[in-house]
Every structure is written in C-alpha cells, then in structure tokens.
Design a protein around this nucleic acid. Structure first.
Lengths: 214, 214
DNA sequence: CCGCCCTTGTGTACAATGTCCACATTCGCA
DNA sequence: TGCGAATGTGGACATTGTACACAAGGGCGG
C-alpha cells in the first residue's frame, strides 16, 4: 500500500472547492478528541490536504476557526436537547408535558456533555468574547439555540402553573448555572468517570433541585 | 537608566536559592492576568532571572507548574471563603449562624471568581486529572480545602435543623454545581461584565435556589 | 471567445514555545 | 578535604501561529 494516507488524498484541482467546511470538519474531529486546545490549525489544514496558510483565506486566525467549532458544537447541544424533548411520551397531560419538556432540556444538555466532552468543552471555550451564544449558527434543527430552548421550556412551566410568574425573570440563569456546573463536575471535576447511570441520576437530582428552588 | 529591567535583577550567586517558589509566584502572576493558558514556562523563568531549562529541576513539565498554580489558587479560594465566614456577625442565634456560614461559603467562592477570574480559571483548569482538589496544598488558613469547607457548612445546616438528614448525602455536589456554574457564567459566559452589585445579587439568588432546592 | 482580475492556494520565513541532552557550578556531607 | 548529588547553563530541535510575496485559475466584461 502507499505511504500513510492519513492526510486527505491529494486533490487534483487547484481549488479545494469546500475548504472552509473541510477545515471546520477536521477541527471538529480534533476537538472531539482532546477539546479546544487540541484544535491546531496546521493539523486541520493537513487533514484537508492543503498548506497551512490556506486556512487564512477562510478564517482570520486560529481563534476564528475555534469559534466556528464552538458554534457547531453549540448547535449539536441544541439538537441533543431537541431529541430529548422529542422522546417524551406525547400522551401526557399538559402540565406534566411542560414539566417533562423542561427536564428534557437539562437532561439533553448533560447527556451531550457526557457523550462528547471534548466538543462540549469546545462549545463553551471562550476566546475573549462569548456573546455569540445566541447566533443562529448555534441553533439546532428547530432554529433555536440552547438558551432559547431553555427559555421556552421555562415559559412552558409558567403557562402550566408550575412556576410563579414573578419567579420567571432570570430563571434561565439559575437553571443554567446548576446544570452547567454539574456538567463541569462530570467532565473534569471530582465526578469524572462516574458510571453513566449514576451520572444520569446526579443529573436528575440537580434538575430536582432546580425545580424546587427556582 | 539601565536597559529594561523587567526581568529580575541578575543574581550574583549561581544558585537561585528559592527558584521553585519564584517560579510559582511568577506563574501565579501570569495566571492572574490571562488565565491558565497565559502561564508560559519561559516567561516564568525569565521573570525569575533564570534560563528556561532551570525550571525542569523543580517541575516535570509545564503541566506540573500549572498544577502548582492551580493548588495555590485553590487555597486562595478557601481563604476567601474563610474570610467571608469570619465576617458574619457572631451575635446571631445558632440556626441563623449555620445558615449564614453556609451562604458565606458560596458568597466567598463567587467573590473570588469575580475578583480573580484568571486565577479562578487556573484553579479549575484540569490537566487530565483533577482528583487533587482535596490535597492539603489546596487548603486555606484553617487547613481546609474549599470542598471541606462546603461539607462542614452543610453539616452545620443539618445540625441546625435546616436540612433534613436524608438530603445531606451528595448535597455538596448540588451546591457546588449551582455556584460553580454561576461563576462560569459570570466570568466568561453571558453574564460577564455584569456590574459587581448585580453579580452579587445573582449570586444570592443562586444561593437562595440552593437553600430551597437542596 | 478572449483577456483580465479577484479569489484561493503555495512557498518561504520568522519568532515563540516546550522539551531534550550534555556540560558547568556549587552545596553539603563523609 | 574532596566527592557526589543538586541545581543552573548552553545549545539544539520540532511544532505552532502567522506574515508577505507569488502562482493558478475561475468567472465576468467586452
């Protein structure tokens, strides 16, 4: 066989055709195994079968590439949340439904953090400015970002009478704090390596606390 | 004047005398402004007035130095917690006292995160393994780590009858999750740049949630 | 259909960084 | 007093991000 063909087979056309996405794809794979710090520009270009500097035609610098990865990962978080919501049995009464859809938001978030820790960390890796959490590039299939999904779920709780209206403002930050904190504990805190089942239980406990204390 | 004397004045003795601590000190300063990724080995040795390789006589590699920084920062977290606890007016009745000492743990944690974001991030920067959070190098003035302080405060809540005994197990992770999550939101999440007063309020809200939901 | 130009990819180069190896200096103990 | 272990030095190397000038060629105006 030919020499190590890890790098993409040499392309014949001078133009790559879809370099930007190829770089994002490669960077995503790097982030998947190794987190944000594993996203190295030269490795991505290597994988795309292109010289390092070619990346600069599509990204201002490494941070820009990392930002694209972050947005993509955030979108995957949203999709995981949506999937979790879609999985709740649809035959329940409205108030139970609202509650289940709220919990699904947190459960999906935590599930993604455990299934893709590298990408999760990349999603929330902050290169100085993370005010883009609401960009549409961070949206899932329904076009909503994780934060929007959380907000809607909270609105659902209010509509169902499960949350007093005067408690609604700022509630996303209470919920987000608790769930994100647990995610960090599970990924690389003292709870790392917890058995998935136990981790799931811990997640449910935290969500219990949120429902009670919000 | 002589050329830029930013680097430590040349020492006359061949031995430095206290290089290990000098490196940690320098690295702490680097982390203070710029977080863990700003801790660069060569910069630290430069500051200590020593050749880069000298560091390897005291630290296996950059990660080892970073670990020392992390432990030192963790200890500062503990001290901030202790200071906050010491500040609660001591004339209150026992149950109010237990409650105040519990809240002080979270308040101190959040205060440190805001006052020293770089060091805070360094404290929880995980180089693959963070099971050292209970090492005595991470302890504060009373010789207790942040987690131990939290645990004691929770025990205090139980003793005071503010927390049912069957809710005690695992409670540290609920509390830690919520507070740490908020810290992250405040440092480099969507809540970054919040006015200190508002940030403090947000912290109290989160602690309210914990008390209610734990 | 042709030629030009703007976009995209290439080559070369440089400064920084972490880390390795061999060597120099010195402290402290036998 | 002398010798070995600890500590600091010098030089070297691979890897990384990034700048600058150049090449290739696709698409549009004429």
């Amino acid at each position: 066989m030919a020499a190590a063909e890890n790098p993409q087979p040499k392309r014949d056309t001078y133009r790559h055709g879809d370099l930007r996405n190829a770089l994002i794809e490669a960077a995503l794979e790097l982030a998947r195994q190794g987190g944000p710090e594993a996203v190295v520009l030269r490795a991505a270009t290597r994988q795309a079968g292109v010289v390092p500097n070619a990346a600069y035609r599509h990204f201002a610098d490494r941070d820009a590439l990392l930002h694209a990865v972050s947005q993509a990962a955030m979108a995957q978080v949203a999709r995981t949340m949506e999937a979790e919501q879609a999985a709740v049995s649809p035959t329940e009464d409205p108030v139970a439904g609202a509650r289940a859809r709220f919990r699904a938001v947190g459960t999906g978030y935590l599930r993604y953090a455990q299934e893709e820790p590298g990408l999760f960390r990349a999603a929330f890796h902050v290169p100085g400015d993370m005010s883009h959490a609401a960009d549409d590039t961070a949206a899932g299939a329904t076009g909503k970002t994780p934060f929007e999904l959380l907000g809607e779920a909270l609105d659902g709780l209010v509509d169902a009478g499960l949350l007093a209206e005067d408690r609604r403002p700022g509630a996303e930050f209470l919920a987000w704090s608790a769930v994100h904190g647990l995610a960090v504990l599970l990924i690389d805190g003292p709870l790392r390596g917890l058995h998935p089942t136990q981790a799931h239980d811990a997640g449910q406990h935290v969500i219990d606390m949120i429902e009670r204390g919000i």
